[in-house]
Design a protein around this nucleic acid. Sequence first.
DNA 1: GAAACGTGGGC
DNA 2: TGCCCAAGTTT
Length: 286
Amino acid sequence: MSDLHTPVLSWYAEHARELPWRGPEATPWAVMVSEFMLQQTPVSRVLPVHEAWLTTWPTPAALAAAPSGDAVRAWGRLGYPRRALRLHASAVAITERHGGEVPDSYEELRSLPGVGDYTAAAIASFAFGRAHAVLDTNVRRVLARAVSGTEFPPVSPTRAERDLALSLVPAADPEVWAVAVMELGALVCTAVNPSCERCPIAAQCAWLAAGRPAHTGPPRKAQTYAGTDRMCRGRLLAVLRDADGSVSRASLDAVWPDPVQRERALASLVTDGLVVRRGQRYGLPD
DNA sequence: GAAACGTGGGC
DNA sequence: TGCCCAAGTTT
């Protein structure tokens, strides 16, 4: 395969979005906050919350000093609010174990709550310029198409994907390569209706050369939501986010008709630490 | 390894 | 109108 780096880097230099967590002015903490928020959530929805978050909590120590419930409330409607709890817990760990500084090694990052393989590699790369295979859904799709000739990557990351991604990490400016491939997947090599006519590596793309064959293999799992416990949890937590202090049982009962499912969802929220019971009332945690 | 975990926008 | 998707992690 001919070189992918030159065309991808040239394309990125011209078409990269200006995002507040990119560039020299972004602190490692700003990068870390963005990576938590961007897990399964689009950039457009993250932007305003990220800005407000950094204004309120400009450092890990600032967040660590706040009640975790404040983090859950500030998370707003980004979804998957356990991420807010884990980001808060990470801030506490950074304050206690790392002197308030976001650690710069993959291993130390990986040990923080809510930081998995992708996020550890992303923070180490984007915030500290470390060389890592940053394998997110965008990069996996780009490599699946360009190199493997398939429309979509496997359901979960494989050893072959990691080896391939690692083999492509350049010695010079590895963090630029990482963000450039990711950006290509986000803007051009999209999951639906990819813009191959605008793609800088169209000439090298195995999938395009094969005539863009449709995905074969197992159907990609559909996400059901309506009527699920997840939806119920979301409704219950929205009541608590929008309330000043604690709320009564009645105000929770009002947003979900099925009492069995409602009880189950509320109990799971308490188990997760997203909700605390205070006597006969409920609220966000301290 | 499968399933759970929120929310909103695009086609 | 629904279905699919979005910089994943945890159990």
